[in-house]
Design a protein around this nucleic acid. Structure first.
Length: 431
DNA sequence: TCTGGGGTCCTAGGACCC
DNA sequence: TCTGGGGTCCTAGGACCC
C-alpha cells in the first residue's frame, strides 16, 4: 500500500499558520509578479475564484468580498514544506517527496507494526498539524495513482475526515466510480477531451479500457501504465529520498517575468545574468555540473503582435562546469545571439540541462587543478554568504545590480508579501 | 535496375504534473 | 498598467553507423 499525504491549499495554509485571524476568511496567494491566483482557501473557492486566473481580472471580486491577498513567499513555503517532509521521514522509513506539498509514503508491510493503516494515517495527519498547523489529507491505495485518487476523494467528502483507505476491491470500485476521468492523475485537458469523445467519463470506465486503445490514444506506454495503476497493479516506481532531502534534478531553470517591459541589452543582461547566477547556485547545491545551457527572452504574447514570442538559443559548453563566471560568460554570448534592438521583452530565463556529477567531468585541455580548487573554495564561500545573509548579498560583477529595489529593472511585483517568519531573524514570527 | 536491416544518438515537440 | 515558474517523461524523426 502507498499513501499520498497532500497539504490542503498549501500556500494559504502557510500564511494562516502565522496569522490565526485568517482562519475562516477567504484567502488567496498570487504567483510571482503578482500575476495569477495559485492557491485559494475553501472560502475563496466558494466565491468562484478559479485557479490560475489573472489577478487583475478578479481584483474587483476580491475587493468586493474582502478576500485577503498574498504575494507568494517561497522562502516561507519552502521552509514549512521542509518541516513537514522532515517529520514524515522521521516516522516512515521510505518517503518520496513528490512536490512542495505532497509526499508518497511506502506503507507496504506496515500493518504488522501499526495495525489499521487508516488509524496510522490519522495519527500522522494530526501530528503534522500539531507541529506546523498545516492541514493535510491522506489517500491510501495499492498504487500511487489509486492513492492520488483516494486523496482526491477525501477532499470532496469532508465526512471522511481527511483519510481515505482503499483496502478492499469493493472500495476501490466505489472510488473509481466517484471520480471523473479528467480528475485522474495523468489525464490533462487533451486526453480528457479524447476520452469524453469516446464516451469514457469516469475513472471506472477508464480502468476498463483495452490496452491497445489506450496505447493508441493516451501517449503510448504512459496511458498503458495509467490504466494498469487504476486496476491496482503498480507501474510507477517508488523513489524514496534521504531524510527529507530534495531529489536531484535533471534540469535546473531560473525564469522570470519582469516587473516592467525591458528592451536595452544592458537591462536584459542584468536579468539573464542574475538568473544564470541563481541557477548556478542551485546547480552547486546538488553537486552537479552542466554541459548545456538554454537562454530565452520573450515578448508579450497577450498583445497585438503576432508570434513568435519566445527567442531562445542553446549553448553547448565545451566542458561541464558549475562555475558562475563560466555561465555568465556563455549567457552573455547567448543573449547576444537572440536580443534584437527596439524589441520589447517581458520575460527571460536560463535553463541548465545535461547535468553531470561535479568533479567527475572531463578536464579541459588547458585547465589546471590548482586553479580549480581555489575557484571551488571561492564559490563555496559565495554560496554560504548568500545562504546566510540572503540571496544576492555577494555577486559577480556581471550579475551585479545597483542597491535598492527601484533600480532593479527586472524585479517583479510582490506587493502583498508576508514575512520570512521562520528563516530570518529580523522577520521572526512573534505573537 | 535492385535500393536491407539493424543499431545509436540527438533534438524538437507534446503531454502531463504541482 | 496588470496574464507564474519549475519540473518530468515519452515519441517521432533525422543523422549517422555497420
Amino acid at each position: 500500500m502507498f499513501a499520498l499525504v497532500d497539504c490542503n491549499e498549501f500556500y494559504v495554509s502557510c500564511e494562516r499558520a502565522f496569522q490565526n485571524k485568517l482562519k475562516g476568511l477567504p484567502v488567496v496567494v498570487l504567483s510571482n509578479n503578482d500575476g495569477c491566483i495559485i492557491s485559494r482557501s475553501a472560502e475563496a473557492k466558494a466565491l468562484g475564484i478559479k485557479m490560475g486566473e489573472p489577478y487583475f481580472k478578479v481584483k474587483p471580486l476580491l475587493t468586493q468580498h474582502e478576500v485577503r491577498v498574498f504575494s507568494s513567499n517561497y522562502v516561507l513555503y519552502g521552509d514549512m514544506s521542509r518541516r513537514v517532509m522532515h517529520y514524515l521521514s522521521s516516522v516512515v522509513p521510505d518517503v518520496e517527496i513528490y512536490s512542495i506539498d505532497e509526499a508518497f509514503l511506502d506503507l507496504r508491510g506496515m500493518e504488522r507494526y501499526h495495525g489499521c493503516l487508516a488509524k496510522y494515517a490519522t495519527d500522522i495527519k494530526q501530528e503534522i498539524y500539531r507541529r506546523t498547523h498545516i492541514p493535510t489529507c491522506v489517500g491510501i491505495g495499492p498504487t500511487k495513482t489509486l492513492a492520488k485518487l483516494a486523496n482526491r476523494i477525501t477532499k470532496k467528502n469532508p465526512a471522511l475526515g481527511g483519510i481515505c483507505y482503499l483496502d478492499t476491491g469493493a472500495k476501490r470500485q466505489w472510488a473509481l466510480e466517484q471520480v471523473a476521468v479528467e480528475d485522474v492523475w495523468g489525464i490533462g485537458r487533451q486526453y480528457a477531451t479524447k476520452l469524453h469523445d469516446a464516451g469514457i467519463c469516469t475513472a471506472a470506465a477508464l480502468a476498463q479500457c483495452s490496452e491497445s486503445w489506450v496505447r493508441k490514444h493516451l501517449g503510448g506506454v504512459v496511458g498503458a501504465r495509467l490504466v494498469r495503476e487504476l486496476q491496482g497493479f503498480p507501474c510507477h516506481a517508488f523513489q524514496p529520498c534521504e531524510d527529507g532531502a530534495t531529489p536531484e534534478r535533471q534540469s535546473i531553470a531560473c525564469t522570470r517575468t519582469f516587473g516592467k517591459p525591458l528592451s536595452t541589452f544592458a537591462d536584459l543582461l542584468g536579468a539573464v545574468g542574475a538568473f544564470a547566477s541563481r541557477a548556478a547556485e542551485k546547480l552547486r547545491r546538488q553537486g552537479s555540473a552542466v554541459n548545456t545551457m538554454t537562454v530565452f527572452i520573450s515578448k508579450n504574447k497577450y498583445g497585438t503582435e503576432p508570434p513568435p514570442y519566445t527567442f531562445s538559443t542553446v549553448v553547448a559548453l565545451p566542458v561541464a562546469t558549475d562555475d558562475t563566471s563560466d555561465l555568465l560568460r556563455y549567457a552573455r554570448i547567448a543573449l547576444k545571439r537572440i536580443w534584437q534592438p527596439s524589441s520589447v521583452y517581458i520575460k527571460a530565463g536560463v535553463v541548465l540541462a545535461g547535468l553531470e556529477t561535479a568533479g567527475q567531468q572531463q578536464l579541459g585541455l588547458f585547465s589546471t587543478s590548482n586553479k580549480g580548487e581555489a575557484r571551488a573554495r571561492l564559490l563555496q564561500e559565495l554560496d554560504q554568504l548568500n545562504q546566510r545573509f540572503g540571496a544576492g548579498t555577494v555577486r559577480f560583477a556581471t550579475a551585479s545590480i545597483p542597491k535598492g529595489k527601484q533600480s532593479v529593472p527586472w524585479l517583479g511585483n510582490a506587493d502583498f508579501k508576508s514575512g520570512a517568519y521562520t528563516t530570518n531573524w529580523d522577520e521572526l514570527w512573534a505573537l
